[in-house]
Write a protein that binds this DNA or RNA. Structure first.
Lengths: 248, 248
DNA sequence: CTCATACCTGTCATATGTGACAGCTTATAA
DNA sequence: TTATAAGCTGTCACATATGACAGGTATGAG
């Protein structure tokens, strides 16, 4: 893919305002590169136990349904690769070697084959605050035929995936907005920050040169705003939502 | 850059075992693309207040020293871009428009010019657990001359940066090893996980069908292993170090 | 069999957190 | 002026956490 076309796609993603517009750009990009299907999925750690998901699927609906029913997300090796790494992974890497003995994973790939997803490449996307996502491009061509083709899209695909993710984050999402539509004051953030370092309210009061009662006051306000039940919860949520970030 | 050469570089990074080997690959890559200098910097949130840093510098040492002395890290717009975004940024974007009025930032870019860093591109790298890094390539050519050149390396540079980061993570680092060289048991992780959700020890005991005392026992063990002082600290540290991760 | 480890449970004293009571100053915008 | 928000402080009662005491079972490795 020449640079001009790549920047054209990036520009389209940067101006997209709805999920459908982004989906349209992905579809065109996917076809342009000679792939059959694409999918984008993002996991937002609003909670460690119940994270939020956003999916933009260009997959056959029947395969998606089957995948969800079978809970393949839990065993899909491309997913676990993308959770642990930041470099792309070729699907054939799994069908060939590593998983030869794992029947459930082999079943997954054989069934994908039946739906026309024979080979593909998955790009991990990692963003601030532990946000994890992935973007996959698939082809119905057999491994040997598609290998060179896929490898030639290695770099552009990763870059494109990043812009898709940024575009997705820009779209206002009602289901997530309510959880993040507030702000913590400077003091509230300061008190929480030192709390993540294991400081007690009294210790924080000494650091900030205010009374212990005031620290408690700020932390309680933060707990109410974050809609959580105690300090541990507040610490986890404030980090996840990006209200407190590492200092330089 | 053709695919063969790109995969050659990736392969070299995948087999590198020391910082110097990685640095050598970066130097070659940098020169191959026609750039003058490169730098890789990573911030590991072992603590939110005092994060750990790892730098692989191919910059002129004088400029590095000056940069550190002046604490430019705190105002460098390429750094803040890379902390907030996952897409590359061209340096000329700042020297031209946004920062026209900001004297300190202009000073930074003018001084960089003097050291031969006239234009460049910075790639953000975000990894699991909020780990943030960046990889920059710079040239002594003026903006107009270097623009097309830089844009043509947009995609490969991002991919290369990802592999550099993975390689850096693979190198055993004594300064960090001590902080992560232990493991939490299944129960310890479970107890911490529910603690991040704001559950009290008693509530966790109900969820796991064990006594409250046992939950306290596991959490205390985790606190000792993590070398932290209380639950809040343990929650923050366990998330940062990746001992507990979002469930599916 | 012994050792190490994970896992489990109890009591007690003290420290800290949490929620509700009540009230203050300062700055800024309507 | 009034209203609003941020920041600040105090006391009391009760809940929960923390640390130290002491003890148990089950499992696998050597």
């Amino acid at each position: 893919m020449d640079n001009y076309r790549l920047f054209e796609y990036i520009s389209q993603l940067n101006t997209a305002n709805t999920y459908n517009q982004i989906k349209q750009v992905c579809t065109t990009f996917c076809q342009h590169l000679g792939f059959d299907y694409f999918i984008y999925g993002s996991r937002i750690p609003t909670s460690l136990v119940n994270p939020s998901y956003i999916v933009l699927s260009g997959y056959p609906e029947e395969w998606r349904n089957h995948y969800v029913e079978q809970e393949y997300l839990l065993i899909d090796p491309t997913v676990s690769h993308c959770m642990e790494h930041i470099t792309p992974v070729l699907w054939e890497q799994f069908t060939k070697t590593t998983c030869k003995h794992d029947k459930t994973i082999n079943k997954l790939f054989y069934e994908a084959d039946d739906y026309g997803l024979c080979n593909g490449i998955s790009y991990p996307i990692h963003s601030i605050h532990g946000e994890a996502a992935m973007f996959s491009l698939t082809t119905s061509l057999a491994n040997k035929k598609s290998r060179a083709h896929i490898q030639s899209t290695f770099a552009v695909g990763q870059l494109f995936a990043s812009y898709v993710h940024e575009a997705m984050k820009r779209i206002p999402d009602n289901s997530l907005l309510a959880k993040t539509n507030f702000y913590l004051t400077k003091r509230e953030k300061e008190c929480l920050l030192w709390t993540t370092e294991g400081k007690t309210s009294w210790e924080v009061s000494q650091i900030l040169s205010i009374s212990e009662r005031t620290v408690v006051f700020h932390i309680n306000n933060a707990i109410k705003k974050l809609n959580v039940s105690n300090k541990q919860h507040a610490v986890a949520r404030a980090i996840s939502l990006g209200h407190i970030t590492p200092q330089f």
